[in-house]
Write a protein that binds this DNA or RNA. Structure first.
Length: 444
RNA sequence: GUGGAUGUAGUUCAGCGGUAGAGCACCAGAUUGUGGAUCUGGUAGUCGCGGGUUCAAAUCCCGUCAUCCACCCCA
């Protein structure tokens, strides 16, 4: 008979149902709005790139679990695994047409063939924002400020932004005589938040010996205040420098702009990615240590040098939208899924459907989102439909009302109805209900 | 990629060699123009997929796909 193809999807790839997609788009639009408030402009780049562009000249790091294949024209091709590397290529190619400093945001899917877990997929949405063309505390700080405002606008409670500086850390490693093992050291140090001081020390003892391990531990352990931490790492790194001064400036401005409750100078933050050269950022939900980093980034002054001789310093950060949503779901802070429709015109009789569309068109022209139920099903079924869709208002108009040109309006949440209203009156009532609702949302 | 756990009705799960079950959800009726209660009745499944052992497999074995957890890495 019929051989049905299984409607399956690949490991780590997912469909997004309306309830999820509505929430995702809401979060996305809040972020876009916030970026634009700060003068960031949108861009897009291709999903596919030449493999050499994504992997750099060596092309050897298969570590990155990149999706790679040969196209029908024999080209060596890969799918982007982040938005920062394609952005560096983008800047190298388009700098003459643009202006500096250039501030962009980019929300798009990226692909990594890694093993899956909750909040960790093979196809996921990243949201990057970067400032290119200046190497200054101003840009480093603006990224931090923007991160904080994004999470504020999303009404995410309890986010901590941890910052550190690669340059200071490298000075310290040089002084320690361990610069040659910096990769292993940074990996171990980065785990402090997860496994604790003892375990980190055990790892460090293996690579650098116990006395150096103790010095490293002293360096990465934050003091009780950011100022004290800065003083400590400045001393351990061999004194004041351009890097520690910049870190101090960023912290000072964070205080001034009211971020001091959220910004933590945390020298154990190093970031695994090797292209960072200056400040690095990492974000945590203290309630959800297992969910991993939701927003991280840093300064990369040499990234574009792979593709151009022009010096293009940059600083930026990336929000993992899918992981953010997984985290919000966990703490039940996701915005309630709404259909996006405000009013349902119920169908009492088929022959009145033309009238229903007139009503709906009037409501739409008054700026409200309306839809007509397309079938004269029993009312309970229509109410159930409205409830499932989260539609807050119903308009009911049977033959008696239609004959005298009136209708009833029902607040589907309180179940109160008002009868015998003209179209204009009904529209006014609907608007009042919606306004009350949106006030409640802001209040909560 | 490595190690482990789990896949049974729309959903949450029970059953763990002998005829596939429950709650919730869903559908119908009590209620032919106003849904959240109650009652009555009903639908509900290739037991993830493929192979093997057995008189007999949801149950045991192997493979495979997917999800979750840890590692790795990171968003």
């Amino acid at each position: 008979m019929s051989d049905i193809i299984q409607p399956r999807v690949l490991k780590g790839f997912r469909d997004s149902l309306p309830s999820n997609e509505i929430r995702r788009k809401h979060i996305q639009s809040v972020l876009e709005h916030t970026f634009e408030l700060y003068g960031f402009v949108p861009i897009d780049t291709p999903v596919l790139e030449y493999t050499e562009v994504l992997l750099g000249k060596g092309g050897g790091d298969t570590d990155k679990q990149i999706y790679r294949f040969t196209d029908n024209g024999g080209r060596d091709i890969a799918m982007r695994f982040d938005l920062t590397v394609p952005f560096a290529r983008f800047m190298a190619g388009h700098a003459p047409e643009l202006y500096l400093p250039f501030k962009r945001y980019h929300i798009a899917k990226v692909f990594r063939g890694e093993n899956t877990q909750r909040g960790r997929y093979r196809e996921f949405m990243q949201c990057d924002f970067d400032i290119v063309g200046v190497d200054s505390a101003a840009a480093d700080f603006e990224i931090l400020l923007l991160k904080a405002r994004c999470f504020e606008h999303l009404e995410v409670p309890d986010v901590r932004f941890h910052v550190a500086h690669r340059g200071v850390f490298n000075r310290f490693l040089n002084k320690l005589g361990a610069a040659d093992r910096s990769v292993e050291i940074m990996r171990a140090v980065d785990k402090r938040g997860k496994i604790g001081d003892e375990e980190v020390r055990n790892l460090l003892v293996e690579t650098v010996g116990s006395s150096a391990a103790d010095e490293l531990l002293a360096y990465i352990r934050p003091e009780t205040t950011n100022a004290a931490t800065l003083t400590a790492i400045t001393r351990l790194a061999g004194g004041d420098g351009e890097d520690t001064q910049r870190l101090g400036t960023v912290l000072e401005w964070s205080d001034k702009l009211g971020l001091s409750d959220r910004v933590v100078l945390d020298p154990s933050i190093t970031r695994g990615l090797d292209y960072y050269t200056g400040i690095v950022y990492e974000s945590f939900f203290p309630q959800l240590p297992q969910i991993g980093s939701v927003c991280s980034g840093g300064r990369y002054n040499d990234l574009a040098s792979l593709y151009t001789k022009q010096h293009l310093p940059g600083v930026g950060s990336s929000i993992g939208l899918d992981r953010l949503m997984a985290a919000l779901e966990e703490i039940e802070k996701l915005p309630h899924a709404r259909s996006g429709v405000d009013i349902l015109v119920l169908c009492m009789e088929e022959r009145l459907i033309g009238r229903y569309h007139e009503i709906a068109e009037y409501l739409r022209s008054a700026g409200m989102r309306a839809e007509v139920y397309p079938d004269a099903k029993k009312l309970s079924a229509q109410f159930a439909y409205a409830e499932k869709r989260g539609i807050p208002i119903g308009i009911i108009c049977g033959s008696i009302e239609a004959d005298s040109g009136v209708m009833n309006i029902k607040n589907l949440e309180t179940r109160e109805s008002e009868e015998q209203l003209s179209l204009e009156e009904a529209a006014g009532k609907a608007r009042a209900i919606l306004q009350r609702k949106s006030h409640q949302n802001y209040g909560a």
